[in-house]
Nucleic acid binder design. Structure first.
Length: 854
DNA sequence: CTAGGGTTAG
């Protein structure tokens, strides 16, 4: 018979057992040990209770906390022999979500039985519930008793509370706390680093990046045995990134690594957004490699989300998707979905964004958050019909997200893009408090919708103190985004004075080296006709991206300097600062086209896919057609179109061909191109106008009249021509046949005088572009009041003596205006710069920069 | 009794 040996009975637990289990983080075991102990009860003393209560708190086990409270009460151990049990209970209740129980416990403790830890526990409990003001009141109570020392624990909680106070209070109290910490030696060498880190993050949360940085510079050395604490470094990196100072954040990361501090997941999650914003793909990839080597980091969903964001921000949506797919479904948390959806939306892959949005809840049971919504809404705004958009608005309201500022900003953007500015303004009016994004979104909407004056008005308003009852300080300073969105407004209006003001603001606020602002400045100066200024900004930029290069190439092309544009292209392709993309080739080919560099253009096009991996798109095909067509090689241009894929969008290619046919008076091909265009875009006036011009130039008046009749019959209206000129910072608009401008009568009279003088000096008007079927004399009369001529006349009257007359026009300049401007430039001895939809014409002394090749 | 992280607008 086999003897069964009973296992040796476990020794009964003691308070020391519980203490060590709690200290080891083994909270479940600590509570189990306690329950076997309660039976014997003799050991349930004031040594065993505090660690047990801490374990209950760590497990968020409210029932255990209450049971321990009851046991302590029975034994009268709450405040005696020390306040330790009561203090631990206070924290446990707070951790378990019962602030009232914690506060009641504190209030029930006679003041003489409280110690400093009691107050510290109370203050941190209030902070846990985000009761910042009450936390500071508790501090005042503690100080009033005057027998408790403020410790590092107290300081850390107080700093946390200060960092969340609205307005100036947080800043004032935070700086006081900083002074207190200094005075009492908390920042001395060798002291624990918690108060130092807490000060840094307080400045971070208050947005006082410079204060944080100077504290870091002066004091970090005192806390950096072995290179310092990773938390300190992480705080610095994230506060710099959030303050938009990404380049400095990257420097801090390099410093940290150089000092031998090992970055962790938080470091990478904080630094990766900088790689995204600075387009530092190489650094992002390096981080990715380190993450892959360390399995623990890859499992950190914050790191994975940041990687997705980094790849998406570097135009590597495919890589982003691969990171997304690599994280298995259950680990794919909300942030991952958000990062991927926003990545798709930012890449303009709206269908993918919407599809993923549909999948996240249906398949993964992950409820969209406000962030998800602010990510998909832009994608939604660009696709589907209006009904889908309003459905999305309804969805947001139903889910109770309509009060979220990010969502409101995205909704406002959606309606602004739709042209529903009134709805956008109504949403804007409801946002409280407004942030810089709210302002930027409405400003951008105004610029895009052409309400540039309103946009500038908003820029003034945003900087004024808030007039509403809101407690938050709503004042916002224009940032790089604000400038970046205003500049295209100046460019569109050819308003260099306003553009220069913005440039000045950028210089004063250290924003001129921002790539986005810099690129927009290069573009603005170029489109305002100041090519030298444009180039100067480009040359001064510390870094440039593909957009900066594209803008400059476009600038030279627009100014008729095709050779320089192509040289810049070569420089870009050889330099490695940016890789040419589709837009680069569009810019380079357009430049070739406008300067007649046909063979160079064809060469570029042939090498495009082979040497640069850029696939020919419909727009690129249209560019080559334009290169060939403008040079009169119309048959080759036609062959390009017929070689395009059948399903490909051919509208722009056909209209380029039609333009070439007008230039070279080719009726036969022109009729073919126009025929295709009338099928593809029956409502587009410019196609009819071009065919009319072709017939008129060939003297085929009946056919010309027939096209005009067809236009009228189908209700196709030509966009009215409109020109404008900036004088003394104000923009003056002129339209043919309109007298809305206050000086209209004077301008018309001046034009009459100029016209008469021109005719006397031998000017012969070119009437081939007049579409109306009237006599020659009447045609000449209509030409005389074309909007660009009126604007030039106004400029001659009001612009400072000797200054170039800079006029912009919304359509292409007609033949006669081109000739007239040329003639006038000599006659009145003034430089005239005329900008149309595509390019610049510089008239000086009777000739044009384009050499009449346009 | 204490500190640090991602996903938004252009």
């Amino acid at each position: 018979m086999a003897a069964t040996v009973a296992p040796p009975a476990a020794p009964p637990p003691t308070s020391a057992t519980i203490r060590s289990l709690t200290a080891a983080g083994n909270h479940g075991a600590a509570l189990r040990a306690l329950s076997s102990l309660s039976a014997s009860s003799a050991q349930l003393d004031h040594f065993a209770l505090p660690p047990a209560i801490k374990s209950a708190a760590a497990l968020r086990d409210g029932r255990a906390a209450r049971a321990l409270h009851a046991a302590a009460l029975r034994r009268a151990l709450i405040h005696r022999p020390t306040p330790a049990v009561g203090n631990a209970l206070l924290t446990a209740y707070a951790r378990c979500g019962d602030l009232d129980a914690a506060l009641t416990l504190f209030a029930a403790t006679p003041p003489e039985l409280r110690d400093a830890v009691s107050y510290n526990s109370l203050i941190s409990a209030l902070c846990l519930f985000r009761q910042w003001e009450r936390a500071l009141d508790a501090l005042r109570g503690m100080l009033a008793e005057a027998r408790h020392d403020v410790s590092s624990f107290t300081l850390v909680s107080v700093l946390l509370a200060c960092s969340h106070l609205a307005g100036d209070d947080g800043r004032r109290l935070g700086r006081e706390a900083h002074a207190f910490a200094l005075k009492h030696g908390f920042l001395d060498e060798g002291r624990e680093r918690f108060p130092f880190n807490a000060l840094l993050s307080m400045y971070a949360r208050l947005g006082l990046v410079d204060d944080a940085q100077s504290l870091f510079r002066t004091t970090a050395a005192a806390f950096s045995p072995g290179g310092g604490d990773v938390v300190t470094w992480n705080t610095m990196i994230s506060l710099l990134v959030q303050g938009g100072r990404c380049a400095e954040a990257v420097e801090v990361l390099y410093d940290m690594v150089a000092l031998g501090v090992r970055p962790d997941g938080v470091t990478f999650a904080s630094a990766l957004p900088a790689c995204s914003r600075l387009e530092m793909l190489a650094l992002g990839r390096e981080i990715h490699a380190v993450v892959l080597k360390d399995g623990d980091l890859a499992a950190n969903s914050f790191v994975a989300s940041a990687l997705v964001d980094m790849y998406a921000g570097n135009e590597r949506v495919g890589n982003a998707r691969r990171v997304f797919d690599m994280v298995p479904e259950p680990g794919r948390q909300l942030g991952m979905w958000n990062a991927m959806i926003c990545g798709y939306a930012q890449a303009g892959m709206d269908a993918e964004a919407l599809q993923l949005f549909a999948r996240m809840e249906a398949e993964a049971g992950c409820a969209p958050s406000e962030t998800t919504m602010s990510g998909v809404l832009p994608a939604c705004a660009r696709s589907e019909g209006l009904a889908g958009k309003e459905a999305m608005h309804g969805y947001v309201v139903k889910r109770g997200m309509a009060g979220n500022r990010f969502v409101q900003n995205a909704l406002m953007d959606m309606y602004a893009r739709l042209g529903e500015m009134d709805v956008a303004r109504r949403i804007f009016a409801m946002i409280d408090p407004r942030d810089i994004v709210s302002w930027n979104t409405l400003i951008t909407g105004c610029v895009v919708q052409g309400h540039v004056a309103e946009a500038f008005q908003l820029v003034t308003e945003m900087q004024l103190p808030s007039s509403s009852s809101s407690t938050e300080d709503e004042r916002c300073m224009p940032n790089n985004i604000t400038l970046m969105t205003l500049l295209p407004g100046c460019a569109a209006q050819a308003a260099p004075a306003r553009g220069k003001e913005i440039h000045g603001y950028a210089v004063r606020h250290a924003l001129e080296s921002d790539i986005a602002v810099g690129s927009a400045l290069v573009d603005m100066y170029a489109k305002c006709g100041c090519l030298a200024a444009s180039r100067a900004v480009f040359d001064r930029l510390p870094r440039r991206n593909v957009i900066t290069w594209n803008v400059l190439i476009m600038a030279y092309g627009m100014h008729g300097l095709g050779g320089d544009a192509v040289a810049l292209f070569d420089q870009m392709a050889a330099g490695g600062e940016a890789t040419p993309n589709e837009v680069t080739f569009i810019a380079a080919l357009a430049a070739c086209s406008h300067s007649g560099l046909v063979d160079r253009g064809l060469e570029l096009f042939r090498g495009m896919e082979r040497d640069h991996g850029v696939k020919p798109t419909p727009d690129l095909h249209a560019c080559v057609v334009d290169v060939l067509g403008r040079a009169g090689r119309l048959d080759e241009a036609y062959n390009i179109i017929t070689s395009m894929e059948p399903g490909e969008h051919q509208v722009s290619a056909w209209s380029s061909l039609l333009g070439g046919c007008r230039l070279h008076r080719n009726v036969e091909l022109g009729e073919i191109a126009a025929g295709r265009l009338f099928e593809l875009e029956p409502d587009e006036a410019s196609h009819y106008v071009l065919l009319c011009n072709i017939y008129s130039a060939a003297g085929m008046w009946e056919k010309s009249v027939a096209v005009r009749a067809r236009m009228r019959r189908q209700g196709v209206a030509k966009e009215p021509g409109c020109s404008w000129i900036e004088v003394d910072g104000a923009i003056h608009r002129f339209m043919a046949g309109e007298s809305a401008h206050p000086a209209s009568a004077e301008v018309h009279a001046h034009m009459d005088a100029l016209w008469e003088r021109m005719r006397r000096e031998g000017y012969a008007p070119d009437t081939s572009c007049v579409l109306h079927d009237v006599g020659e004399a009447e045609k000449a009369g209509m030409l005389r009041y074309h909007s660009e001529k009126l604007a030039i006349a106004f400029g001659l009257l009001r612009a400072p003596a000797g200054a170039a007359i800079r006029v912009a026009k919304n359509l292409r300049v007609c033949n006669d205006c081109h000739e007239a401007a040329k003639f006038m430039s000599k006659m009145v001895g003034r430089e005239i710069v005329l900008r149309d939809v595509r390019r610049f014409h510089h008239f000086r002394d009777g000739s044009c920069s384009c050499g009449d090749y346009w």
